[in-house]
Amino acid sequence: MKNLAIATVLSFVGITAFANVESPELDVDNATVIVAQDFEEIEVSSLPEAVSKAVEKNYPTAKIDKAYKNEKDQYKLDLSLEDGTTGTVYADAEGNWIDM
């Protein structure tokens, strides 16, 4: 009887192993392109006036803590609000917000 139980379990395991559907692999190359944007830190004072004005207009209580720039003249801005919340926004050189 014990052998019958073991044989049943082994049969079940063998069947489920063949029935396993392969899950698609994560495309790491695309994820890396989205995450790594090659931004280099710059002085906040060196931001284009259009970017600074866009922050003043859309986030009047925000302070720009850090600024970064990439080779496409896109800017990553670390902002902090008066209530203590922080966030990151992205803009182009003309002060238009972009999604990254």
Rank of each mutant, 00 (worst) to 15 (best):
N96Y: 11
N58G: 05
E56P: 04
T88E: 13
I64F: 00
Y75G: 03
S46R: 08
T88D: 09
L47K: 01
T8A: 09
V21N: 06
E71L: 13
T85D: 15
E40D: 14
A93D: 11
E56L: 14
V44P: 02
V33I: 15
A93T: 11
D73A: 07
G95Q: 05
A93Y: 04
A31G: 13
K63F: 10
M1R: 09
G95A: 05
D78R: 10
K72I: 11
E82I: 13
Q74V: 02
I64G: 03
S52Y: 10
T85E: 15
M100V: 11
A91V: 05
V44F: 01
K69R: 09
K66V: 02
Y90S: 00
D73V: 07
E56K: 12
D29K: 15
S11Y: 07
A19Y: 13
G84L: 02
N30F: 11
D73G: 01
Y75Q: 03
L77P: 04
F39N: 00
E40H: 06
L47T: 02
V33Y: 13
M1T: 10
K66S: 05
Q74H: 05
V51C: 04
A50S: 09
S45A: 15
A50G: 03
I64R: 00
Y75I: 04
A5S: 12
D83M: 05
Y59N: 09
E22D: 14
D65K: 09
S23W: 10
D38G: 07
T85N: 15
D38I: 08
A17N: 12
N96V: 09
G87D: 12
Y59A: 06
A62S: 01
L4G: 01
G87R: 10
V55C: 02
L26H: 08
L26P: 07
A93E: 10
E94F: 07
I34D: 07
N70T: 04
A50K: 00
